[in-house]
């Protein structure tokens, strides 16, 4: 049988629905447990972040104005495409040293997790919103709304489950996201980007920057057009001053507190990425 020489994948960034290389031209290497080269991964710079924020901002209004039903459908579609690429995700996990069974289990659980969040799209309002019995002739209600553009420092472990457990609750309600991921976890992140690109997720809703998180996070934290940063997968030694940069625009900071669970599945995780808007209207004839 004639051998098939494998065609290796180029691991690029995912910005605004396209797969560019880093403007900096930099890459980093991901190697297998036995030292073999798995990939030269694009290493995003602050300028790549800038572009990703632009893409996310311009996609945000459109994404959040979709009906919740439609967002749920689109996310479910992502799960369908992931399902068809189970082997690829499992291989990516295995390549970086995960035992085969464990890798498969993580992939299956991750897809289930995504489906679970997809279903929340048109239900989270029931749990997190309210009608408020004010003492006057007013109809008063509180609705959750997306906070806007969020940057997610994805956890390194577990690579796929950690990423999906933060990304799904962030975008299901209408936020757009920039995922920062690094090291070996980059491989599944890029595969996910390819899934997203071939699902019905509009360009810019999710942007994936493979990078050195410690390098890019400070720029995300001080960026005035970023509404929220999820520090779940932030490096432990991120300096106080760096986190303090978030105060520049009173940015919301979630995740990464001592004792918090990076793979928690809860509507309250969706709530972490939401604002609450309260509306008053008089009741009269």
């Amino acid at each position: 049988m004639a051998g098939h020489m494998p065609v290796d994948k180029t691991y690029k960034l995912f910005i605004g629905g396209a797969f560019p290389r880093s403007e900096s031209g930099r890459t980093f290497q991901v190697r297998s447990a036995d030292g073999g080269l798995l990939a030269n991964v694009s290493r995003a710079s602050r300028k790549d972040l800038r572009e990703a924020v632009r893409a996310a901002r311009s996609a945000q209004a459109g994404w959040s104005s979709r009906t919740a039903y439609n967002r749920g459908q689109i996310l479910y579609r992502v799960a369908e495409v992931m399902e068809s690429r189970r082997a690829e995700f499992a291989t990516a996990l295995r390549d970086t040293g995960r035992p085969a069974r464990s890798a498969r289990r993580e992939v299956d659980a991750s897809i289930d997790r995504w489906v679970w969040y997809a279903g929340w799209a048109d239900k989270v309002h029931h749990v997190l919103g309210s009608v408020n019995p004010v003492a006057g002739p007013y109809f008063n209600f509180t609705v959750p709304e997306p906070t806007g553009v969020v940057v997610i420092a994805a956890p390194d472990e577990p690579p796929l489950m950690g990423l999906l457990s933060r990304l799904a609750p962030a975008i299901v309600s209408g936020n757009t996201a920039i995922v920062l991921t690094g090291g070996a976890a980059s491989l599944v992140a890029v595969s996910l980007a390819e899934v997203l690109a071939t699902s019905d997720v509009p360009a810019g809703v999710v942007n994936v920057l493979t990078c050195d998180k410690a390098e890019v996070l400070p720029w995300a934290l001080s960026h005035l057009d970023v509404n929220l940063v999820d520090l779940t997968g932030a490096p432990d030694d991120l300096g106080d001053e760096v986190v303090a940069g978030a105060a520049e625009n009173v940015k919301r900071i979630v995740g990464g507190r001592e004792g918090s669970d990076p793979v928690e599945a809860s509507p309250y995780v969706i709530g972490d990425f939401l604002e609450m808007k309260t509306i008053w209207h008089p009741i009269g004839r």
Binding site: N140, K277, W280
Partner: peptide, 27 residues
């Protein structure tokens, strides 16, 4: 983009009604 929207009224407050801001108005 605001945490409280008053329609055909303004500056109403009630303990049952959540109050707070978006963006640089706080969280």
């Amino acid at each position: 983009r605001a945490g409280v929207v008053w329609a055909n009224t303004y500056n109403q407050f009630d303990p049952a009604s959540p109050f707070g801001g978006y963006k640089e108005s706080g969280f």
